[in-house]
Design a protein around this nucleic acid. Sequence first.
DNA 1: CCGGCAAGAATGAACATTCACTCATTTTGG
DNA 2: CCAAAATGAGTGAATGTTCATTCTTGCCGG
Lengths: 192, 192
Amino acid sequence: MTRTPDKRSDILQAALELIAERGFHGSPMAEIAEKAGVAAGTIYRYFESKDTLINELHRELEREILSSLQDGYPSGKPIRERFLFLSREILRYFIGHPLQFRYMEQYFNSPYGISRHRERMLAKSDNQDLLMDIFEHGIEQRILKELPKPVLFSLSFGPLITLIRDHILGFIILDEAMIEKIAEACWDAIKR
Amino acid sequence: MTRTPDKRSDILQAALELIAERGFHGSPMAEIAEKAGVAAGTIYRYFESKDTLINELHRELEREILSSLQDGYPSGKPIRERFLFLSREILRYFIGHPLQFRYMEQYFNSPYGISRHRERMLAKSDNQDLLMDIFEHGIEQRILKELPKPVLFSLSFGPLITLIRDHILGFIILDEAMIEKIAEACWDAIKR
DNA sequence: CCGGCAAGAATGAACATTCACTCATTTTGG
DNA sequence: CCAAAATGAGTGAATGTTCATTCTTGCCGG
């Protein structure tokens, strides 16, 4: 852990690294503190509890990922192209950020993530969700299959999650050519 | 918990129910024992440790699921039909067995499952794997996309996992008509 | 048919450990 | 020189596991 003047960031970074590779329960506060180059008690000056730390870290990662996806997004282009852009970018982002992926996975497979998921699904207006927009218009224009949006979502992103995990665990290698083929296969799943 | 003469089964059943809904860490041995109508120490007459209990439960569930998938499998029929059969059956099985699904999910997102996954991926001959057979012949006969088998696997089963979870959490409802459409969408993802 | 008895099964209180969190004390920096 | 920041030993609760003790069962000699 390289010490910086910003202890809060050090703590978040240490938590990310530890939790990504050992899970929430394999990451005691004492160890996070040590990795961050900070005393155990210090964490509680920046985060109310372990739960708070975990949730705030999730929020920060989510923000980073969303902003990375918006970067270079071809708003004006056809639906197919926009969809392929997002699929490719998600694959690339997580392949380049395995810790973030492992953390998010842990998070979503825990009580934290499930309640968060619940909030999102029941939320009236889902902020600026690029994907929902694609699905909405894609169905209207008869380009996409006429399925509920959560189903379209699962068809396109379910495989990506599984594949990224297998890549990170070293079972397969996703190079650029493979990424392209996968994005297109996902498109085939949802297109009419 | 209904008491039966078979304490081992009682313990496994209690563990399944508790862990499925609260996770490994929300399920202390004392509580599993109580739910099984057994004293804490008794569990250790049947299972060496909590880890052993968790792994043996996984094995039993896996056996049940596999045997359920083999039941009625249309061996002689064309590849497309066999694939659709498996997709539908997996959806149906887990929709009818939500505890089993939640348990398996917990398991695969834990150190237990990751090492198990590793074993499987590196195993030479994967016993009688119906799916790998479909992929193998599908590629040969130019029916399926020419992609590595793990990729075909993710494309077909990644979405199912996500969808089953959303169904169990109550976010969507998968009826028979929807199951059919989903299985066909998965087929579109892998077919040439 | 009975009474006692040995062996396995079951019990649950006690133990050791782990871990999130606290707080009296020390260090830092302006 | 003092207020805010940081420290880390200490605390109490939770939990996996053990084991001395109790209970159950089935057998056997009388």
